[in-house]
């Protein structure tokens, strides 16, 4: 029953995203292409934060690893889109293994600080190799290069549906993963790590696996961003890009399958709308965030789950 409802909900979300393409004006279609890519990032973050209970402040490095892995291998390695995409995701995966081995020795605040430090280091490395990365300024991936099997990814339609397909794969894969025994064990760690260990679970290995999967999804998002929007820049490795996924997931609902998408949409339009009538849009956004944190601490989907739809996956 729950499985059926989840599948129905997830199908509805995906159908709605397809429908939006046909009903939304061009500006919002573009916005939603971006939203779906960033939602992949949020989905990855949610596995570690929402399900496993580990708060990372350094996920921008995984996003950026995907982005730079993609961009640099195209511009300097002469790769085409698909192999470059694989390079980006692999880079994020390897980085998360390395970071995991070191950072997972710590817990709580120390883990936050260590991940933050790794990400800052990564950011500085990008700046240091400015000759190749062009630092803060970043670099463009030529429109002509951004195509798969002759399909030009730079048209609004191709971009939207490439983002959609990637989102759908990540969204469904993650929904499945968190319902699997592996996902339940991660939740067990979040709920009571010592109990999980004393049930015979290898908590260290499970956490590492969660971090690597989370890093891979972030890398997919980073590579997809570079592929679809044609820009690679160090600002995506900066600290605010580590804070964003935390905010998205908190707002949308940590530990829910739809929360990350909701959070990204909410925050995107919060800033979009408020910036259209005031310069102090960050203030408006900030106040909205504070209110939501006060009155719906479990985020939008989390609060729905608590108040009305207890089966929400």
């Amino acid at each position: 029953m729950v499985v059926f409802r989840s599948a129905a909900l997830h199908s509805c979300v995906l159908l709605a995203l397809v429908a939006l393409f046909f009903v939304l004006p061009a500006y919002h279609v573009g916005a939603f292409s971006r939203i779906m890519v960033l939602a992949i990032y949020a989905i990855g973050y949610n596995l570690l934060f929402g399900y496993t209970g580990l708060l990372s402040l350094g996920h921008a490095m995984f996003f950026a690893a995907g982005m730079y892995g993609f961009g640099l291998s195209m511009n300097f390695g002469g790769l085409t889109v698909l192999p470059a995409f694989a390079v980006g995701v692999t880079a994020a995966g390897l980085l998360s293994v390395a970071v995991g081995f070191l950072a997972l020795r710590t817990i709580g605040v120390a883990f936050m600080i260590v991940t933050l430090m790794f990400a800052q280091t990564f950011y500085l490395v990008i700046l240091y190799f400015g000759e190749y990365t062009r630092g803060d300024e970043g670099f463009i991936i030529q429109q002509a290069q951004r195509s798969i099997a002759g399909i030009d990814l730079t048209t609004e339609t191709a971009r939207y549906f490439t983002a959609f397909i990637l989102f759908a794969i990540c969204f469904l894969a993650m929904a499945r993963l968190v319902q699997s025994p592996f996902g339940k064990r991660l939740v067990a760690i979040r709920e009571n790590e010592e109990r999980a260990r004393m049930l015979g679970y290898d908590v260290g290995r499970l956490k590492l696996a969660a971090l690597v999967v989370s890093g891979l999804f972030s890398g997919v998002a980073g590579a997809a961003y570079a592929m679809l929007f044609g820009y690679v820049g160090a600002s995506f490795a900066a600290v605010h890009y580590s804070i964003f996924p935390l905010l998205w997931v908190l707002l949308g609902g940590a530990g829910t399958t739809v929360g990350p998408l909701i959070g990204v949409i909410f925050m995107f339009y919060l800033i979009d709308v408020s910036s259209s009538f005031t310069n102090a849009y960050m203030l408006v956004a900030g106040i909205a965030l504070v209110l939501l944190t006060l009155f719906a601490p479990q985020g939008i989907a989390g609060t729905l789950r608590k108040r009305a739809v207890s089966w929400l996956p």
Binding site: P181, K184, R185, V187, A188, E191, N192, E194, R195, A196, M198, L199, G200, Y201
Partner: peptide
């Protein structure tokens, strides 16, 4: 007492049996 407070009774037991 050390259980998984936020999970259902069934999920608690299922996690123990699930290894």
């Amino acid at each position: 007492t050390s259980i998984f407070p936020g999970l259902t009774v069934e999920d608690n037991v299922a996690l123990a049996a699930g290894r």
